[in-house]
Amino acid sequence: MVTSDAMTPAGPRAGVPIGPRDSKGYRLFTGLNAGVLVLVCLVVLYPFITLLAQSFSSAGAIKAGLVNAVPVDFNIETYRAVTQDERFWTSYGNTVLYTVVGTVVAMILTTTFAYVISKQHLRGRNVLIGIAVFTMFFNGGIIPNYVLISSLGLKNTMWAVVLPGALSVFNLLVMKSFFENLPRELEEAAQLDGLGWFGIYVRIVLPLSKAVIATMVLFYSVAYWNDWFSAFLYLDKNELFPMSLYLRNLIAGASTTTAESAAAIGTTGAAISANIKAVTMVLAILPILVVYPFVQRHFVSGVMLGSVKG
């Protein structure tokens, strides 16, 4: 009822200065709206807050159900214990390695192919685009992919994690439309100066595309950073596990890995206490949280670039 009342009065749209025509009802709506949005923020943030609180609390306090938004028995012992575990750092290092290598490979594949299919005069261009786009709508599925990776001998190598995700068609199309919109005169001038296609690509097009390249790098690195499933499928050796898989095993509390690492951190029994899980999760999210405020707008602009193409 309240909302419909609040919606009734006529007033200027958002962005238009607030005029005297703003009625009481509209102001009520604005207030309610702000309230709803604050609530949304709280709901989004609460899991982070409670995670942080748990990470600074003692296992006993969490077990007693005392920890919500504020740490109980504040301590940083858990952080010390987790960061002293060798496995934690191995998996962290693996994640960094897979992310860097994967992003580099993916960027090479994506930018070169995007450049080629951005050339509107190119014969067979539509075929090339079609080959890429088809894979968006029909993929092989888990089993054939698994069989393929196994028979290529990639199991238990970094490449099983890096290669399958190395070309996202969405990112490809975003780059393609960006390249298509670059001013043509520059390329023509370069051509008159005797540069071939590859020279133009390396010396003219790539330097002009720093913004979109940054966005794509972000997209790919987040995808690799967060990926756990290909590691879960294709890697059996603890020393190859990325952070996400280490974390998954910790959370699931199932495999031998976790029991061992629990022993390593000095916890007894197979059950990993909640504070250790919390600390590991906080440390896994941390890089994303630190970088996020600075790069967020690149992500947004990347999504918009993609949507322009439709």
Binding site: I108, L122, T135, G140, A166, W197
Partner: peptide, 28 residues
């Protein structure tokens, strides 16, 4: 445009191996 086709080779090979082979692999 030979250079352009050449540049497309690596990505195409990738698509064939990691996208189309699994599709074909569905014959199992």
């Amino acid at each position: 445009d030979g250079v352009l086709y050449l540049m497309a080779l690596l990505p195409l090979a990738f698509l064939v191996v990691f996208r189309y082979l699994p599709v074909a692999g569905n014959v199992i």
